[in-house]
Amino acid sequence: MHHRAGERRRKLAAAVLGRDPRPAPRSPEETEPFDVVSGELLDVSPHLIILETADGEQRRLVIAPWATAWRGGTVAPADLPAGARIVVRALRGGTVAEHIWADITRITGVIREVGGRRDLTVELDCGPHRRERSIVVPYRSSGRIRVRHPKLEPGYLFDAIGLLDQGTSLAHLPATSQPPYRATAVPPSQVTYGGSETGISGTAVWADLTDLTDLPGFAGAGVTEGVAYPMLERDETGCGDAGVSCAGLPYLALGSVLRVRNVCDGRADTLPIVACGCLAGQFCDRCLECGTSPRGRIVELTASSYVALGGDLTKGCFNARVGLG
């Protein structure tokens, strides 16, 4: 499924149902998303950061005096190493860096095997697109990971935020409280009838969607915007775990456009569905960023889209509301 094909689907659906193919404009209570620049860090000084984006463009950003950076913990922006993969939340048309996350990765999957005594090595099954992944829970963070993940046993879900260090994924922070059930026993959704067909609230999380190299749409690594959505049809996506969700989501297709709104700060954007959120559908958790969200993950955003909507990558989620764009 190519990104272009998604656009074509949108046009054809709009033609046959007489819709306006353009995304609907923002409503007055919604604010614009942040500018986000992501890429490889080339050079950094206390006041200037230079990075190369995925399409080879060099960007220079002024670092705001109040800017903060994260690389396994809060660091000064000038201490970031060259070559780091960074995501920058920027102001003023993407020229002033306000918040920088470096080498951050989201480790979400089903535990296959746990080994090691001090530093734990965890083999994860990250779904048909992300395949298997081996990660390390360093001894210094194993305490806080275990508090939120009491069952580090095969068959249970795992979700943490970590650091990519020389090719190794080190888990640093738990991204959620581990669901108490096995990944194969996702509780069924509460069927809600009536109301608007597309009124969905829940939690929005982020994922390393740009790592999905075996999805043709990502071959050029140029797709930085978009969402993964759990309720897709299995035949279409080639993903055996699709079509599972505890949030009571409606069926959509690759290429459908969602309007995602961050309930906490009102930022909203229209984003296309670019992948199947097989793992997102298995988590029945709530987000506590601002109030308690209804349970269930409704979308997995790319890191850039997540930051653009006002999310903090070191916190795993924000309360979201989703409509069909």
Binding site: A5, R9, A13, V16, L17, T198, L252, G255, L324
Partner: peptide, 13 residues
Amino acid sequence: SDMWRELCWRFFV
């Protein structure tokens, strides 16, 4: 040549 589903509609091309 292509088919997909969106909410209560299924599209065929």
